[in-house]
Every structure is written in C-alpha cells, then in structure tokens.
Amino acid sequence: MINIAIQILIWAVGIIAVVTVNALALVYLERKVSAHIQCRLGPMQVGFHGLLQTVADAVKLVSKEQIIPKNADKVLFILAPILAFFPVIVLFVVMPFAPNLICRDLNIGVLYVFSFASLEVIAIFMAGWSSNNKYSLLGAMRSVAQVVSYEVPLLLAVLAVVLVIGSLKMSEVVQYQHKIWMIFLQPAAFLIFMMGGLADTNRSPFDIPEAESELIAGFHTEYSGMRFALFFLSEYSNVFLVSCIATALFLGGWYGPFVNGIHWFVIKVYALVFVMMWVRWTLPRLRPDQLMNFCWKILTPIAILNLLVTGVVLKLVH
C-alpha cells in the first residue's frame, strides 16, 4: 500500500516537472525556429543564446496581477484554465515512454487518451464564454466548431490503426511495431492524424480560434498572469502530447536502430514537434469556411476510405 502511494507520488511529481520544463523548452524552441526561418536571431540576451528567456518570461507571468473582468462569470473564468491544464497531466499517465516507463498501462489506453483530449474544448469554451468579450466568444465558438469537426477524421485514422493492431493497450500498440513501423502500413492515417492533431491543438495553419490579426488572442484575450500562463502551458504541452501519441501509434515508440529505449522516443517526439513548428512558420492561416471544407470534404472521406480499405485487406489476409 505504502509502495503504491510512493509510486503515485513520484509519478505525479515527475509528470508535473516534465510538463513544466518541456513547455519552457518548447517555447524557446518555437521562438528560435521562427526567428531563424525569418532570418532573425531570436532571444539572445538572457543566458547563453537566450536559453533563460522563457524562465524570465515565466517569472514575469507569475508575478503579474490576475485581472478578472467586471462582467465576467467569475466561477467559470477561474475554473477554465484549471480545466484546460487538467487533461494535459492526465494524458501523461498512459504515455509509453519506454518498456518499463508507463505510469498505468490501461487496457483502454488509446480510448482514454482521446476521451480526455476532447475535454480541452470544454475548457476553451468556458474561457471564451465567461470572459464576456466578443473576441473571446468568437474565438471559442470557432474553436468548438473546429475541434469537434477535426476529431472525426482523427479518430477514424486512429481506428484504422487500432484495427490493424487489435488492441487499445498503449504498450501492445508499440510492441506491435517492433518489426515495421505503423507509418509504413498506414501512411494516409498518419497524415490525417497529424493534420487533425494540428487542428486539435489550435496551431497554424488551423489557428483561427486565436487568429491574432482578427481576434487579438481568441479565447484567452481577457486572461492575465498565471491563468494566461496555464493556457500557454497547456497549449505547448498539447503539442508535445500530440507528438507523443503520433510517435506511439505510428513511429514505433521506443523502437529504433541500435539500442531501443526512451532516447528514441524523445528524439522522434522532438522531430515531430519541430515539424509542427516548421509548418506553423511556413503556411498562412486558413479561412473558417476553407477549414470546414477541408475537414468534411477532403479529410473525412479519405479517412473513411482508408478505414474501408484497411478492413477489406485485413479480412483478406486473415
């Protein structure tokens, strides 16, 4: 009993530490990648090549005043950032970092991941609704429409993968790929998953919920201080988590040339994160109607077709 309690405590502290440090690293990486793509230098002043810049930003955000607008719905306004951050920590529970490094290897791991990931949209809508601000509400409405739509092709793509593997357990999903990675069996599903992941995390080119040029900051326009930092933290952790899930489902998790282990998982995850940043600083933002057309007219039919073909091929093989 004591053993289990200590284990849970260590995992909880470890997960929170990973989430925070990782978000700081990703913000720094994002700023550097964007700077070098635009032929700039990026942060250079705080620490060696600006390495401590995000730490300084975090200190600034923590020490700032937390403003609650006069006509805001206070309970929802305070709860929204907490609810946005909650799924991030919960999702780390089933991430298969290495053969012996899974907090809880649930039988329904994949289902668990996507059910908690869809909680994010409720937090975003709470934030947008409670702020009592037209920009927040518009951003939140767009976000709900976008995330709910893009979950359809995303889950259909994951369904094809689960169909091939025949298990929802994260460790079995990874172990299935020790010979051949799932990306070579299901390339279309991987592409659909990454596009859906970009849309689910509200990142460019699907970042209309926070489109800076028209909505200021979208759903978190009214937030300041630590509450804003929580939204920021959950946004970057979501990027990390989508890359983690893609690595586990498609890129063979901890398997790689030479020695298998957590280092291959981390390398693959950061490569995917870099690709997501690279896409962000290359492509312009889509219009809302283009976004919906792209989801319902292109991605969903392809995902259904992919699922159909997978099913037929599996039936023929067995």
């Binding site: 990648v33 700077a35 070098h36 793509i37 635009q38 032929c39 700039r40 230098l41 250079m44």
Partner: peptide
C-alpha cells in the same frame, strides 16, 4: 532560409 545566416545583428 532557416539554414542561412540571420540578417539582423545584436
């Protein structure tokens, strides 16, 4: 372009 030298200076 990312691999090119930045045009800005400190």
């Amino acid at each position: 372009w990312m691999l090119k030298r930045p045009v800005t200076i400190q």
